[in-house]
Every structure is written in structure tokens, then in C-alpha cells.
Design a binder for these strands. Structure first.
Lengths: 197, 197
DNA sequence: AATAAATTTGATTGGCCGTTCAAAATAAAA
DNA sequence: TTTTATTTTGAACGGCCAATCAAATTTATT
């Protein structure tokens, strides 16, 4: 026991969030309880209630943490490229890469999005967060600029954005193709470009 | 109270399944309990346990019922068309139409797929049911035949199938585009054809 | 009509849940 | 050091859950 036994609040909050992510992946949302999270983090249950106003608050903070992680990773990769075509390719590659290397985070995110509901009982997966979906905005901006520069053909940007993001999400779930991440990325990118060019 | 008070077993089972679908949509998987389902169906909780071996059994039967409903609907529409291109268009249109007109069923299906886990704790959404995913098989067959007849270009059928199904799933969730079902179907089909031709 | 089989009820049981809170431990401030 | 603020514990509470089962009701058979 050489660790500092008490961490300041912010570090403790992050520790709890990380424990929540682990438990979400291991047992699923339905079986995720505060006592399991507390156990995973080696703290008492009461401490979670001290740092978060309740289970819902903890879940929401965990979701924000997960969304932020993915956003930062993908945004950075996209910004390194200059042309819309290259940015689009970077977007796809980075999305697949993030899902490949942060599988635990992605599963936790799925568990939350498809389970949590607002106080008035609306599932998170049906919420239209027009202003909060940063990845969607980024992708749409790439598509629009590509159309302006004539690299891309004339299509409805939101529809194509939906197709691309659907393809990325689906590929995380269905591993029915027996391809490596690189092979899959190459084939997916080729088809998407065929569609937008 | 003019209904027959007692139904035979098969009818009772279906009644319970339909009540389960309603409760799943209204309250979400997490809050779905046998007593709520019993209440919705105006029967006692014990009766559910009499007709199903447990909650898990009921959920699995509900899932099979939902998958079957969608499968029959789409399969029929596809079989009415002759060429791979027309079959593909019918597949997309029927998938979107089913989701549009059976929203309650689709939400219940999502709630189950993203929550239920096998006894050894594998989420349903990660199971690779190679032999059980009839819709995937149907779509792949269409794509392969289209390649044989030279209507479609040379691509990896499973990858494209994943893209198409992802686009369809995603479109149910993200209604960020403000298009009608018909408009969306038209634009989506156009883009998909651009990709496979 | 009498008996057997199938169906339905509803109360009960034991278990896990999220939250609360007084008391203890630690850290910070004076 | 003394005092105050922050952090942590762990037990206790009320609530809902899935499952069980004996008793009651209805249907089928003889």
C-alpha cells in the first residue's frame, strides 16, 4: 500500500469513471451496479455517491468522457490532412483505428447509448443532438468542402454522412468478413470514394 | 369482459410476447419487468412463468418473433423483383419501409439486441451468427448474382453488405436529415447504386 | 356427472439495488 | 497545535425484482 490513500476529487472522479467503463464492458449495462463499480475501484459504494449525485450522473459523465476521447483522436488525424478527399480518408481510417484499439471504450459507449434514457424516458440513441454531435458536424463539413472544390459529386451531405457513419458503426459489430483492419479499411475507403466522387 | 377469459397456450404466448414488445418500447430493457409485462397483458405474473421458463426465455422468444416479422416482410418484397439491381433496390426500400411502419417493433428489437447477453456473458450484438442472419445472406446473394451478371462491379460482397445494412440501421436512429421516407430512400438508393455499379 | 388435465392467481421468498447518513479518517488552514 | 474542511467508510433502509408454489378456476375427457 504505497499509493496515496486519498486522491483529490478530480482524480477520484476519473478513477471511478474508468472503473465504470470496465464494469460496463465486463457485465453490460443491465448488470452494472454501483457496488460492482466500487468493488472494481477498491472503494466503498458511498464514495461514488459523494463524488456523483447519483448513478445517472455517473453514467452521463462516463458517456461524456468516452465521446471526448474518440473525438480528440479522430479530429487530430483529420486535421493533419489538407484536401477533402484526404480528410475523408483520414476520418474513416481514424474511426476504424479507434474502434480497433479502444474496444473496451467502444463497448462501454454502446452499452450506455443503447440503455440510458432521459428523465422523460427518451432513449439516448433516439436523441437528435443537432449541436452536440461533433463527429457528424466534422464529417459533413468535409463533404461540403469537397463538393465546393468539385472533388466530390452532387449529393445530400447528411444522407452520405449517415451512410458513412453507419458503415463504420456496423463494421465494429459485424466481423463476418474475415479481413484485417487494414484490409477492411482499404476496401471500405475505396467503396466510399466510389460513392462520393 | 366479453373476451374469452382463457386462451389456449399458443395464443397466450403470443399475447405475452406482444405485451413485452410494448413494454420494451415504452420503458426500455432496463426497466422492463415481468410484472410490468403482466400488467400490460392484464394477467398475473405467475402466468408468464407458466408459459415461459423464465425472463430470458421470454426475451429470446420475443427476439425470434421480431426477427421473423422483418424477415418475412423484406423477403417477400425482394422475391417480387427479377434482376439483381431491382432486388437490391427492393431490399433497401423494404428495409426502410419496415422500419418506418413498424417503429415499435424495431425499437423493441434494438432494446433486446443491445442488452441481452448469453449465459457466458457475450452481448447479442457481438454474436456472429453466420448461419442465422438470414437478411445478411439474402443481401449477399443479391450482390453476388449482380456481379456474375456484370450488373455490379468487382467488390468484396461482405464489406458492401455491411455498408448497406449499416446505412439502413443508422438511418433509423439518425433523423438529422429532414427528409421524408421516400426522399431518403431515393437518395440512399442512388448513392448505393453509384457504389456498386 | 364425475374425474383428470390444463391454466391462472396472488402471496411469499430471498436477493440485489441506489441512496442515505452518522461516524471515522485524513488533509488543509489557522 | 488546534481547528476546520474534505474525504471515506460501512451499515441500514425501503423498494423492486424473478421465481416459486399451493390453491382456485376453467377446460377436456371419460
Amino acid at each position: 500500500m504505497e499509493n496515496k490513500q486519498y486522491l483529490i476529487a478530480e482524480a477520484r472522479r476519473e478513477q471511478i469513471i474508468k472503473a465504470a467503463i470496465e464494469v460496463l464492458r465486463e457485465t453490460g449495462y443491465v448488470s452494472t451496479s454501483l457496488s460492482k463499480i466500487a468493488n472494481k475501484a477498491n472503494i466503498s459504494t458511498g464514495l461514488i455517491s459523494y463524488h456523483f449525485s447519483g448513478k445517472e450522473d455517473l453514467i452521463n459523465n462516463t458517456l461524456m468522457y468516452l465521446v471526448q476521447q474518440e473525438w480528440v483522436f479522430i479530429k487530430e488525424k483529420v486535421e493533419q490532412k489538407q484536401t477533402p478527399t484526404k480528410k475523408l480518408m483520414a476520418f474513416i481510417e481514424a474511426s476504424l483505428a479507434y474502434q480497433g484499439t479502444n474496444r473496451e471504450n467502444n463497448i462501454a459507449l454502446i452499452e450506455i447509448v443503447f440503455n440510458a434514457r432521459t428523465p422523460d424516458n427518451v432513449p439516448y440513441y433516439l436523441i437528435e443532438d443537432d449541436d452536440e454531435d461533433l463527429l457528424n458536424d466534422l464529417l459533413q463539413e468535409i463533404l461540403r468542402k469537397g463538393q465546393k472544390s468539385k472533388e466530390f459529386s452532387d449529393f445530400h451531405p447528411q444522407v452520405i454522412a449517415t451512410v458513412i457513419r453507419g458503415a463504420i458503426s456496423e463494421s465494429m459489430l459485424s466481423s463476418q468478413h474475415k479481413l484485417t483492419l487494414e484490409e477492411y479499411n482499404e476496401k471500405l475507403t475505396k467503396s466510399i470514394l466510389q460513392m462520393v466522387k
